[in-house]
Nucleic acid binder design. Structure first.
Lengths: 218, 218
DNA sequence: GTTTAATTTAAACGGGTGTTTTAAATTAAA
DNA sequence: TTTAATTTAAAACACCCGTTTAAATTAAAC
């Protein structure tokens, strides 16, 4: 099973680069392998040769980001825990900004692409992706949940479960429609927000929602 | 152009009923007309005969809910405005509960289906649906935005625009994955939440996020 | 009851999909 | 230089899609 080097960029990489861009823009099922391979300037059959199937290509595209993001995010959380004073929610959420923006160095537009892929994946793949992420990156997620729970101790675990998924929905839906929202915002309010600006807008929103006290039932 | 009555349920209605269920469960592009017509026990061609195209069927499915929900929601908002004391955000969001739950009387599971359709539509149909909703139901939306803005006057309009879309993402993503989330919540915490319970959980979260003060830049 | 219009049916059309196959070209190893 | 393994290339495969057509059926109007 030796691996030869291709003349230009690696065929596998060319496919991944073209695929992630198209997947993020149009969704998985709306993106055909023929479109991917023509943008990547490789042969149609090479997708199945290198990845086996479209489904596995989707996983490979996501894994390339998750493998960078998850350890980096976990390290940031760890760093917070080491800190003597208990971090507040805004700080915990903000600690993800650096790992997210680092993805822009991995690839141009990486942060947006990653978050859009995450959103598409959660919505399109009826639970498959959720399973894939929790089984492959569960240890990283646990640390994050633990940190959030510790800084909002008045929220019981079951309630926190729901609120963290509200949070996931907030960020994921926002990024999936970020381009469209920016167009409207630009037309109506004359302001354009890049990915970092949107992230910085959404963090206070999520932090406030996660930590809001539970009302006594009427 | 007279209209005859079919023997069983109206063919048009049978198509709409089958379509909305499948659309909500699997998304628009993942649901073929052949699947819809087989579930509805009608002929494949009847979709194009009655609706013209799949795209128009999608719009018809959504309109059937929006035509009920929007006026009802607007009436509730109106009622709040009539009230002397300015309603707070929780009350404004909560005023949508009744219109939402009324959809369950229109059709079984109507509330969930409607919210899921809304989410699918916003994400899948690259802007088409957003345009359809704002142009057809814009006057209703304006009243809602006005009410929310009035009860959070410290949030400038551009910021409120983003926060309201965060809110849309929160509710829409949550409902789209409500079944999956409930499965996990049941296994991990032994509690099951119906649609109303989830809505009541998410409202304080959204209200807190929308009204949280804007931090001064560091 | 006959004519006219509305609806339903079955079949086909043209095109796009993921995947597989076959053979040629390229690269690595012997 | 010969042999083997890998990678590319083009074509075909089998299937599903939304849509259209034209005939059969049903309902309404006269």
């Amino acid at each position: 099973m030796g691996h030869g080097m291709a003349s230009r960029t690696d065929t596998k990489t060319r496919i991944l680069d073209a695929a992630e861009k198209l997947f993020a823009e149009r969704g998985f099922s709306e993106t055909s392998l023929r479109l991917i391979t023509s943008k990547a300037e490789v042969n149609l059959a090479s997708v199945n040769y290198h990845f086996g199937s479209k489904k596995e290509l989707i996983r490979a595209v996501l894994a390339r980001y998750l493998d960078v993001f998850m350890p980096s995010a976990a390290a940031e959380i760890q760093r917070l825990f080491k800190n003597p004073e208990l971090a507040n929610l805004n700080e915990i959420f903000s600690s993800l900004i650096k790992p997210l923006l680092e993805l822009n160095q991995v690839r141009h537009g990486g942060t947006t692409i990653f978050l859009q892929l995450l959103g598409r994946g959660y919505i399109e793949s009826q639970g498959h992706l959720r399973w894939f992420i929790t089984t492959h990156y569960g240890k990283y997620l646990e640390a994050f949940v633990k940190a959030v729970s510790a800084s909002a101790p008045h929220i019981p675990p079951a309630e926190m479960f729901w609120r963290l998924h509200f949070t996931l929905g907030t960020i994921v839906f926002t990024m999936a429609s970020a381009d469209a929202l920016n167009e409207i915002a630009e037309a109506d309010y004359g302001e354009h927000n890049d990915t970092e600006a949107i992230i910085r807008k959404v963090i206070p929103y999520m932090a406030a929602g996660v930590s809001v006290p539970i009302l006594a039932k009427e």
